[in-house]
Amino acid sequence: MSENITKESIIKEENCVYKRTNLLVDKALSYCPGCGHGTAHRLLMEVLEEMNIQSETIGIAPVGCAVLAYEFLDIDMQQAAHGRAPAVATAVKRLMPEKFVFTYQGDGDLAAIGTAETIHACNRGENITIIFINNGIYGMTGGQMAPTTLPGMKSSTSPYGREVETMGNPLKMTELVAQLPGTYYVTRQSVHTPGNVRKAKKALRKAMENQKLNKGLSFVEIVSNCNSGWKMTPVQSNKWMEENMFPFYPLGDIKVPVE
């Protein structure tokens, strides 16, 4: 019987078990090969598709590699000034509380220039979702040191490795915002293995679902790679991330709603 099964007989619409969601615009992503941004974009759009909230969602793009996120996500979007996405999202949600609102920000945007906006949106308990892609480097501008760059980690502005004595310590924003009474759900995920991708998607789903509850801000950090900035192959960068990033930025839920 199995001999009769041809390639052509399998590749049929009714047998399709996974395809790129239509909520991603049909164009090539501008990200480097192997970059986690693409995966995170796709997961988020899959979540909106499954929740059937495309027409009720407004996204806020950052400044950084994801500045062009609106080119790829087939939803209404605004592009915010550097670091200001949580303030922009605050107004969108306050003025249209029935909508789903998210920000999508990198580490420079969220944890350096936008620290105040991030902390205060979290502390006010804005009923939005913040998605935080942490790859420990400024990718867009060519690999400079980020607030989340690890001690000893090389970047174009810490060419001999980050010296904490002079350059300061990496900032664990996610642990920080988990302390604030306004955050409802805080988690750290990754998208570097199929298993982690599936977990990250569940977290994103929960973070968007939470907006229906009106109980505060959901914050999803995704520790990701920057193989261009780290000067590694995508496969090497994921291994390096496991060995170096995860010990400092451990994966898992940091603050979960008490039922």
């Binding site: 200001r84 303030a87 107004a91 969108v92 003025l95 906006e117």
Partner: peptide, 24 residues
């Protein structure tokens, strides 16, 4: 009408950006 005391003038003007972009 929503009235919000922002954390800074920077945040306030970006809230205006967000609201205006929604046609408000």
């Amino acid at each position: 009408m929503v009235v919000l005391q922002a954390e800074s003038e920077v945040a306030a003007i970006n809230m205006v950006y967000g609201g205006a972009a929604c046609g408000k």
